[in-house]
Amino acid sequence: MSIGDYIRESQVWKSIFRHPAPVDRRNRVVVMLTNFFLHLHPVSVKQQGIALSYTWCMGGITFFLFLVETITGVLLMFYYRPTLQFAFNDILALRDVTTLGIMREIHRWGAHSMVITVWLHMYRVFLTGSYKPPREFNWVIGVLLLVLTLLLSFTGYLLPWDQLAIWAITVGSNMARATPFLGYEGPGALLLNVGGFDLITSGSDARFLLLGGRFVGEGTLNRFYILHCVAIPLVVALLIAIHFWRVRKDGGISQPL
């Protein structure tokens, strides 16, 4: 008995993989049903539904990039401290001295790539009419995922705490100041006052809520850090699960049922 067979016949191996290797038709079906990671897929698909020139693979790449971002992001969290005292210097150290500081490069380029691949995924879904019945609602979830991807990228942009970061966030968040009714420079904000007392001021408007202060400062860094590392990824993970689940339930990525 070869060593390979010995391992495959052992109780440990069989407890993990309940079936023989997927080399014949029966076991290729079974592996899709019994493996947790593979069961996201159906057992069989239409040939054209997986043709690369048809799907462009962009949804899958987006998901893979999300995983890359999660892994590199967790590793970066071991080094990075989101305070005014440490934030910039930690990134500097990642660049100059930390072993595997390249995680930051991969994280950043992966983030930019993810924004682009989300757009291209939507582009493909639109051009193939894959949002048409019965997949209308999954397109809506996809739009939400687009928003969250942009927000993930936006909140992460602040964390290096350099000039590029704070001014990009300042410019981006200045818009919130002009939110109708809820921003203190927005139309209608003056109407929201009680007995001559303004409810919407620079200390209580939408921008203040976003930044945790009147300008981009320590409160913002903390807020964006938590949004970036915990809050948004949790929501994204949930929506991705629903998105994938609905692809299965709606009968594949494309084509009428």
């Binding site: 079906v29 897929h41 057992v43 069989s44 698909v45 239409k46 040939q47 997986i50």
Partner: peptide, 14 residues
């Protein structure tokens, strides 16, 4: 997209 559109197994094709 309707030509050669048989069902294939996800393992190994996908």
């Amino acid at each position: 997209e309707r030509e050669k559109n048989e069902k294939v197994l996800v393992w190994p094709d996908l």
